[in-house]
Protein backbone atom coordinates (compact mmCIF):
# COMPACT_ATOMS: atom_id res chain seq x y z
CA UNK A 1 0.00 0.00 0.00
CA UNK A 2 1.59 3.25 -1.15
CA UNK A 3 1.33 5.96 1.49
CA UNK A 4 3.60 8.71 0.26
CA UNK A 5 2.87 10.36 -3.09
CA UNK A 6 4.27 13.26 -5.09
CA UNK A 7 2.38 16.50 -4.51
CA UNK A 8 -0.27 17.67 -7.00
CA UNK A 9 2.13 20.44 -7.97
CA UNK A 10 4.76 17.91 -8.91
CA UNK A 11 2.28 15.76 -10.85
CA UNK A 12 1.06 18.87 -12.65
CA UNK A 13 4.59 19.74 -13.67
CA UNK A 14 5.19 16.15 -14.71
CA UNK A 15 2.04 16.08 -16.88
CA UNK A 16 2.63 19.53 -18.35
CA UNK A 17 6.22 18.67 -19.24
CA UNK A 18 7.84 21.33 -17.08
CA UNK A 19 9.61 19.09 -14.59
CA UNK A 20 13.35 18.68 -15.06
CA UNK A 21 14.66 15.42 -16.51
CA UNK A 22 16.03 13.97 -13.26
CA UNK A 23 12.94 14.43 -11.08
CA UNK A 24 10.82 13.46 -14.06
CA UNK A 25 12.28 9.98 -14.28
CA UNK A 26 11.88 9.47 -10.52
CA UNK A 27 8.25 10.62 -10.70
CA UNK A 28 7.73 8.36 -13.75
CA UNK A 29 8.81 5.39 -11.65
CA UNK A 30 6.33 6.30 -8.96
CA UNK A 31 3.49 6.91 -11.42
CA UNK A 32 4.21 3.61 -13.15
CA UNK A 33 3.59 1.88 -9.85
CA UNK A 34 0.78 3.94 -8.37
CA UNK A 35 -2.70 3.85 -9.90
CA UNK A 36 -3.86 6.86 -7.86
CA UNK A 37 -1.08 9.07 -9.21
CA UNK A 38 -1.47 7.65 -12.74
CA UNK A 39 -5.13 8.73 -12.65
CA UNK A 40 -4.11 12.17 -11.39
CA UNK A 41 -1.59 12.50 -14.22
CA UNK A 42 -4.28 11.48 -16.73
CA UNK A 43 -6.48 14.26 -15.30
CA UNK A 44 -3.69 16.78 -15.72
CA UNK A 45 -3.03 15.64 -19.28
CA UNK A 46 -6.73 16.03 -20.03
CA UNK A 47 -6.42 19.53 -18.56
CA UNK A 48 -3.60 20.17 -21.04
CA UNK A 49 -5.85 18.94 -23.86
CA UNK A 50 -8.64 21.26 -22.74
CA UNK A 51 -6.24 24.23 -22.53
CA UNK A 52 -4.98 23.41 -26.03
CA UNK A 53 -8.57 23.51 -27.31
CA UNK A 54 -9.12 26.88 -25.67
CA UNK A 55 -6.06 28.54 -27.20
CA UNK A 56 -6.64 31.18 -29.84
CA UNK A 57 -5.62 29.97 -33.30
CA UNK A 58 -2.31 31.46 -34.44
CA UNK A 59 -2.07 32.15 -38.16
CA UNK A 60 0.19 29.76 -40.04
CA UNK A 61 2.37 30.64 -43.00
CA UNK A 62 0.86 30.14 -46.46
CA UNK A 63 1.15 26.61 -47.68
CA UNK A 64 1.97 25.15 -44.27
CA UNK A 65 -0.21 22.13 -44.83
CA UNK A 66 1.13 21.46 -48.33
CA UNK A 67 4.68 21.75 -47.00
CA UNK A 68 3.91 19.19 -44.32
CA UNK A 69 2.39 16.78 -46.81
CA UNK A 70 5.48 17.06 -49.04
CA UNK A 71 7.59 16.31 -46.01
CA UNK A 72 5.46 13.26 -45.25
CA UNK A 73 5.79 12.04 -48.87
CA UNK A 74 9.55 12.58 -48.86
CA UNK A 75 9.75 10.73 -45.54
CA UNK A 76 7.86 7.76 -46.92
CA UNK A 77 10.07 7.67 -50.04
CA UNK A 78 13.29 7.46 -48.08
CA UNK A 79 12.44 4.80 -45.56
CA UNK A 80 14.88 5.42 -42.79
CA UNK A 81 17.17 2.62 -41.73
CA UNK A 82 16.28 1.81 -38.15
CA UNK A 83 18.89 3.15 -35.78
CA UNK A 84 21.21 0.64 -34.17
CA UNK A 85 20.21 0.16 -30.58
CA UNK A 86 22.75 1.88 -28.40
CA UNK A 87 24.78 -0.43 -26.21
CA UNK A 88 24.02 0.58 -22.69
CA UNK A 89 26.46 0.08 -19.91
CA UNK A 90 24.47 -1.21 -16.97
CA UNK A 91 26.03 -2.46 -13.81
CA UNK A 92 24.36 -5.20 -11.83
CA UNK A 93 22.85 -3.43 -8.84
CA UNK A 94 21.09 -6.37 -7.27
CA UNK A 95 17.50 -5.39 -7.98
CA UNK A 96 15.23 -5.39 -10.99
CA UNK A 97 15.17 -1.81 -12.18
CA UNK A 98 11.89 -0.11 -13.14
CA UNK A 99 11.03 0.10 -16.85
CA UNK A 100 11.33 3.87 -16.77
CA UNK A 101 15.10 3.31 -16.53
CA UNK A 102 15.31 1.06 -19.60
CA UNK A 103 17.22 3.65 -21.67
CA UNK A 104 19.53 4.72 -18.88
CA UNK A 105 23.07 3.74 -18.11
CA UNK A 106 23.67 2.53 -14.60
CA UNK A 107 27.06 2.73 -12.96
CA UNK A 108 28.58 0.35 -10.41
CA UNK A 109 28.08 0.82 -6.69
CA UNK A 110 30.64 3.14 -5.18
CA UNK A 111 31.34 3.59 -1.52
CA UNK A 112 30.65 7.13 -0.39
CA UNK A 113 30.43 6.73 3.35
CA UNK A 114 30.01 4.09 6.05
CA UNK A 115 27.22 1.77 4.95
CA UNK A 116 26.30 4.02 2.04
CA UNK A 117 26.85 3.36 -1.66
CA UNK A 118 25.64 5.12 -4.72
CA UNK A 119 25.44 4.31 -8.39
CA UNK A 120 25.21 6.95 -11.03
CA UNK A 121 22.22 6.85 -13.37
CA UNK A 122 22.76 8.51 -16.74
CA UNK A 123 19.62 9.42 -18.64
CA UNK A 124 19.75 8.82 -22.38
CA UNK A 125 18.31 12.19 -23.27
CA UNK A 126 19.85 14.29 -20.57
CA UNK A 127 23.17 12.87 -19.42
CA UNK A 128 23.81 15.81 -17.12
CA UNK A 129 20.72 15.24 -14.99
CA UNK A 130 21.50 14.44 -11.37
CA UNK A 131 20.04 11.02 -10.75
CA UNK A 132 21.47 8.25 -8.64
CA UNK A 133 20.68 5.00 -6.95
CA UNK A 134 21.44 4.98 -3.29
CA UNK A 135 22.01 1.90 -1.17
CA UNK A 136 22.08 2.22 2.59
CA UNK A 137 22.76 -0.63 5.00
CA UNK A 138 20.23 -1.79 7.59
CA UNK A 139 20.00 0.45 10.63
CA UNK A 140 22.15 3.17 9.11
CA UNK A 141 21.36 6.77 9.69
CA UNK A 142 22.00 9.22 6.92
CA UNK A 143 23.72 12.36 8.14
CA UNK A 144 21.56 15.47 8.06
CA UNK A 145 21.64 17.38 4.86
CA UNK A 146 20.02 20.33 3.18
CA UNK A 147 19.52 21.12 -0.46
CA UNK A 148 18.42 24.22 -2.28
CA UNK A 149 15.82 22.66 -4.54
CA UNK A 150 13.34 19.85 -4.24
CA UNK A 151 14.68 16.37 -3.67
CA UNK A 152 12.73 13.39 -4.98
CA UNK A 153 13.38 9.92 -3.60
CA UNK A 154 11.51 6.80 -4.63
CA UNK A 155 11.97 3.66 -2.53
CA UNK A 156 12.78 0.57 -4.59
CA UNK A 157 13.71 -1.89 -1.87
CA UNK A 158 13.71 -1.94 1.93
CA UNK A 159 12.42 0.93 4.03
CA UNK A 160 13.42 3.96 6.04
CA UNK A 161 11.87 6.29 8.54
CA UNK A 162 12.25 9.96 9.29
CA UNK A 163 10.35 12.57 11.27
CA UNK A 164 7.64 12.66 8.61
CA UNK A 165 6.87 8.99 8.37
CA UNK A 166 7.79 5.50 7.24
CA UNK A 167 8.73 4.91 3.61
CA UNK A 168 8.41 1.56 1.86
CA UNK A 169 8.82 0.36 -1.74
CA UNK A 170 6.54 2.40 -4.00
CA UNK A 171 6.59 5.41 -1.69
CA UNK A 172 7.98 8.70 -2.86
CA UNK A 173 9.57 11.20 -0.56
CA UNK A 174 9.39 14.73 -1.88
CA UNK A 175 11.36 17.08 0.30
CA UNK A 176 11.79 20.79 -0.19
CA UNK A 177 14.73 22.81 1.01
CA UNK A 178 13.02 23.49 4.31
CA UNK A 179 13.08 19.85 5.32
CA UNK A 180 16.11 18.92 7.36
CA UNK A 181 15.79 15.22 7.33
CA UNK A 182 17.71 12.45 8.86
CA UNK A 183 16.33 9.22 7.48
CA UNK A 184 17.13 5.98 9.28
CA UNK A 185 16.99 2.70 7.40
CA UNK A 186 15.00 -0.05 9.15
CA UNK A 187 16.90 -2.84 10.86
CA UNK A 188 15.20 -5.43 8.67
CA UNK A 189 17.51 -4.92 5.71
CA UNK A 190 19.29 -2.58 3.34
CA UNK A 191 17.36 0.09 1.51
CA UNK A 192 17.73 1.01 -2.18
CA UNK A 193 16.26 4.25 -3.50
CA UNK A 194 16.48 6.31 -6.63
CA UNK A 195 16.98 10.00 -5.99
CA UNK A 196 17.10 13.19 -8.02
CA UNK A 197 17.64 16.76 -6.99
CA UNK A 198 16.17 19.67 -8.80
CA UNK A 199 18.25 22.65 -9.77
CA UNK A 200 21.56 23.38 -8.12
CA UNK A 201 22.45 21.81 -4.85
CA UNK A 202 24.75 23.22 -2.28
CA UNK A 203 27.77 21.03 -2.36
CA UNK A 204 28.54 20.65 1.24
CA UNK A 205 28.46 17.98 3.84
CA UNK A 206 27.31 14.50 3.20
CA UNK A 207 24.83 15.14 0.44
CA UNK A 208 27.36 17.25 -1.36
CA UNK A 209 29.71 14.27 -1.35
CA UNK A 210 26.96 12.08 -2.72
CA UNK A 211 26.37 14.30 -5.73
CA UNK A 212 29.80 15.86 -6.15
CA UNK A 213 31.22 13.32 -8.61
CA UNK A 214 28.16 13.73 -10.78
CA UNK A 215 29.07 17.33 -11.36
CA UNK A 216 32.74 16.84 -11.96
CA UNK A 217 32.07 14.26 -14.68
Amino acid sequence: MIKHHPSDETLLRYASGTLEAGPRVVVAIHVGDCTACAARVADFEALGGAFLDDLPAEKLGDGAFDALMSRIDADAASRAIPAQPRRLSRAEVGIRLPEALDDCEVGPWRWIGPGVRRSRVTLADDPKANVMLLKVAAGRRLPEHTHSGFEYTQVLKGSFRDARGHYEPGDMDEADSEVDHQPVVDETGECICIAAVEGGIRLRGFFGRMFQPLFSA
Partner: peptide, 20 residues
Protein backbone atom coordinates in the same frame (compact mmCIF):
# COMPACT_ATOMS: atom_id res chain seq x y z
CA UNK B 1 4.52 18.56 -24.78
CA UNK B 2 7.22 16.04 -25.71
CA UNK B 3 8.18 17.95 -28.85
CA UNK B 4 8.63 21.02 -26.69
CA UNK B 5 10.72 19.11 -24.13
CA UNK B 6 12.91 17.79 -26.90
CA UNK B 7 13.39 21.22 -28.40
CA UNK B 8 14.35 22.82 -25.09
CA UNK B 9 16.79 20.01 -24.45
CA UNK B 10 18.46 20.49 -27.82
CA UNK B 11 18.81 24.16 -26.99
CA UNK B 12 20.75 23.01 -23.96
CA UNK B 13 18.32 24.49 -21.49
CA UNK B 14 17.50 22.53 -18.39
CA UNK B 15 14.23 20.89 -19.19
CA UNK B 16 12.08 17.88 -18.67
CA UNK B 17 13.69 15.78 -21.35
CA UNK B 18 13.65 12.04 -21.13
CA UNK B 19 12.66 9.14 -23.24
CA UNK B 20 9.20 8.73 -21.82
Amino acid sequence: RNVRIDRLRREGRPSAADSL
